[in-house]
Design a binder for these strands. Structure first.
Lengths: 203, 203
DNA sequence: CACCATATCTTGACGTTGACAAGATAGCGA
DNA sequence: TCGCTATCTTGTCAACGTCAAGATATGGTG
């Protein structure tokens, strides 16, 4: 897993040393990690800032210093998510099929990020680092799909189709809307499905 | 628009007659309509039960009598949504392409329903009327896609692909993730995109 | 028409939440 | 050593979801 910032990798000792009465050491990261856990358990709205503070062992108002408010925290989560996302797509950028599969894999492996990223009403879209990573990811989608078709008009359609297919599969899988097919490996199934769209064009 | 129950179609007079001190007349419907409005304005989590009660002109605890709690209200919204959804798909069931377009059109025309329906953590999936409508909609998807391919294995893939494509396009469009392409008619664009998947198979 | 059982809605209360303000503490450079 | 600033705590407030108890209307039964 590629994380843009050192996550919960520091030893318990090191944390205990830093953890004096007032200074947590790395509260910002701890709160984000707690948020990711909470989102994994009960969605992007099934928890409270105070609960995250409790999990991190700090007072109820401590998170506000780092994130301002709840939307600020979710903005940080989304920004971090788009970075991990862009990295994952770039690593597969040579092949459209691989990009599509990487899209699905990211959604499943990093579900908490994914559940926030595509819900703009939860956070502030004008965040600079967020926009940068977002454009980086979009660039991979456009260029990898652009290698398939000749004209720019076709290119545009191909990009939207591939993007929609990967995004739709990921969303439906996560929401559990594909009940009978929920057996087996989602990644393999995704690959077969995406091949149905791109297979003909690639021969 | 097809609504499973008489919505805000009754005249203001009729409502005023029924609206005595204690009895609203049709509070259940009024609360659902208020919820749809609120979800349209600020998403499925950007409002409160008390706000809906205020909009309907009743006390803060009145909605609880009809829906139990917030999840109960959202369950009613989702159930109603799946009914409208199933009706819309059934009306286009003759052609896979039309079904896909109807899928996207529903998401855009009935955005509040759509935003709740595919977020299972918001409501109670075990609701009977919800499950019935849900299976009805799924049946249209499977049978319409099944007319394309010969074998059952191919059929399964085709169904998932078409479903994912339509669902992904709708989700991305609603979230505003397709910025540069956001000009023009989404329905026409959706038709072009879906044709990219099914066009080859149908000749 | 009188009566009452029941559905519907109100009032009041409790614990929790997000947000803000003011104060306390720690780390760090001058 | 001093003081500046980032970091965290404590206290507070209105708003929220939910529950309990009471009030009122409606429709059926006699």
């Amino acid at each position: 897993m590629v994380s843009p910032a050192p996550s919960n990798t520091e030893s318990a000792e090191a944390r205990q040393i830093k953890q004096t009465a007032y200074h947590h050491g790395n509260l910002r990261r701890a709160i984000i990690d707690a948020a990711l856990e909470a989102i994994m358990e009960s969605g992007p709205a099934g928890w409270s800032l105070r609960e995250l503070a409790r999990r991190a062992g700090v007072s109820h108002a401590a998170p506000a210093h780092h994130f301002g408010d709840k939307a600020g925290l979710l903005t940080a989560v989304a920004a971090e998510g788009f970075e991990v996302f862009a990295n994952a797509l770039e690593r597969a950028a040579d092949d459209v099929l691989d990009v599509g599969v990487a899209y699905v894999r990211f959604a499943i492996d990093h579900r908490p990020y994914f559940e926030v990223m595509f819900r703009p009403e939860l956070y502030r879209m004008d965040d600079p680092s967020l926009q940068t990573a977002r454009e980086r990811a979009a660039h991979v989608l456009v260029t990898s799909a652009g290698r398939l078709s000749p004209g720019p008009a076709q290119n545009r359609l191909t990009t939207i189709a591939g993007w929609s297919l990967a995004h739709g599969f990921a969303s439906l899988w996560l929401s559990g809307a594909l009940p009978e097919t929920a057996h087996g490996d989602p990644e393999a199934l995704a690959r077969s499905v995406i091949r149905l769209l791109f297979g003909t064009t690639r021969g």
